[in-house]
Design a protein around this nucleic acid. Structure first.
Lengths: 248, 248
DNA sequence: CGCAGAATTGATACATCTCAAGCTGGGTGG
DNA sequence: CCACCCAGCTTGAGATGTATCAATTCTGCG
């Protein structure tokens, strides 16, 4: 880790890869210009902690590239992931000055940070930002509730299948691939991170992945590279409603 | 069920018991007046279904009195509660026309409903409503994430203790009682509903409640009336951070 | 080459579920 | 006013899924 990586490049919002999906999605160009003034980029290496729960947090941010996780930890060390942040997802809460969760980069990560105070002021004066943030927060709440069903009621096998389906679906939407072709992707999480996501141990994750592989529900090249020959089959294993659980 | 109970009383917002906590909390009197025009009350008896997941939903609403639940159900009948709605809590999602969850009255319930279309229009023109809704949604997201930790990582005993602590805390805040006095309240949920909340079976709920009672962590008069002689002790059993888990 | 982190696999323990049998208390009709 | 009824609840015994503890086995990398 030769160079300490505070990336200071200052990209134009117009060229930003998450321009149309992030909290700024609905902003007009003059609004973007105001955002440019309060924003800065930060980069993190895979495995680095972005912020610890309870730490003072004087910014909010969007994930630009890479993946981050939100996790809660109990005193005795039990960990539960409570958020998986992909490009365009938002981190931090306006009106709160301490981080509520540990935020960790699971891949190399670039975040577009906004100084909190001016961002909060802008939210008051810029309905486009508040509107978009509300929409994104409602989506996250739906995702959290789907996740609660998984944690509370699904078997280990269903949990794994669900997670693979979630990753496959998202991957397809990023790459704009058809839903029907055989899906291929790399797992962005280690077995342990998957366990933290699913409320399992890493051993159980490993066993269930092996079982799904043995039965041909998935194929593995190496430990991370996954092929889904038949998404419908995987969805059945996930125990979701046939429509894929997407509303509206 | 003698009378079909569409309560048509039209209360003045100024007198509303949830005036200062609900989605309308920040509204000025002229804004309240506009809300009055698009609102109507509906009452439900304990056990009645407010709406089924997937049904068309042409209103959004605030709980005025009573308690409602949001639940998800899998094809084979496994159920997970994903929301517990108390007075002032908000139901429905602007911009979505179908219910995403089953909504059920667990006690007699009064809701203040707003016709969805005009409410959505008002949200665009009334920042006070959108701001408050964002704040409430962020709070719900935090609660959902706390709940995810419970579902994914806590033992049955910790789950029960956590739920009792949540109910006790909320009850104290409604009644404005001191946190330190012995807490007394009635469980608003059956054992089965508690099981659906906690991702357990009702038998396990019953056994753990019996165990906590046997060990003096709680006292029971009848099946519903609970006394917490020592909240700190209960919090320990819940496995939460000592501060009660409340941020900021 | 050989090490270290990540993953797999095995054997066993244990928490929770499942199935089953009673209990309890409040309401109802005779 | 009593007897019964029934939903809600409790308790028991055994089954089962996942965790735990412990060895290996991979894999990428210095």
């Amino acid at each position: 880790m030769a160079h300490h990586d505070l990336n200071v490049v200052h990209q134009q919002c117009g060229d930003c890869p998450i321009r149309h999906r992030a909290v700024c999605a609905r902003c007009e160009s003059d609004e973007l210009q105001r955002l440019e003034e309060i924003k800065y980029y930060r980069s993190f290496q895979a495995g680095q902690t972005v912020i610890w729960s309870g730490d003072r947090m004087d910014f909010v941010a969007s994930v630009v590239t890479g993946i981050a996780t939100l996790t809660q930890t109990m005193e005795d060390g039990r960990r539960q992931m409570v958020g998986l942040l992909l490009p365009s997802d938002f981190v931090g809460r306006p009106g709160r000055d301490k981080a509520a969760y540990d935020v960790t980069a699971t891949t190399d990560l670039v975040m577009c940070c906004f100084r909190k105070k001016p961002f909060e002021e802008m939210m008051g004066s810029t309905p486009h930002i508040a509107q978009r943030l509300l929409e994104m927060t409602l989506d996250e709440l739906d995702a959290a509730r789907e996740w609660m069903l998984l944690l509370g009621r699904k078997t280990a096998r269903e949990k794994i299948a669900s997670l693979l389906a979630i990753i496959a679906r998202r991957d397809a939407s990023l790459k704009l691939k058809s839903q029907k072709s055989a899906l291929v992707f790399d797992l962005p999480l280690t077995r342990e991170e998957m366990a933290d996501y699913l409320g399992l141990t890493l051993e159980t994750v490993s066993r269930q992945i092996s079982a799904l592989k043995r039965e041909g529900v998935i194929e593995l090249q190496g430990k991370r590279h996954v092929t889904i020959p038949n998404l419908d089959r995987l969805m059945e294993e996930a125990g979701d409603d046939s429509d894929g659980g997407f509303l509206n």
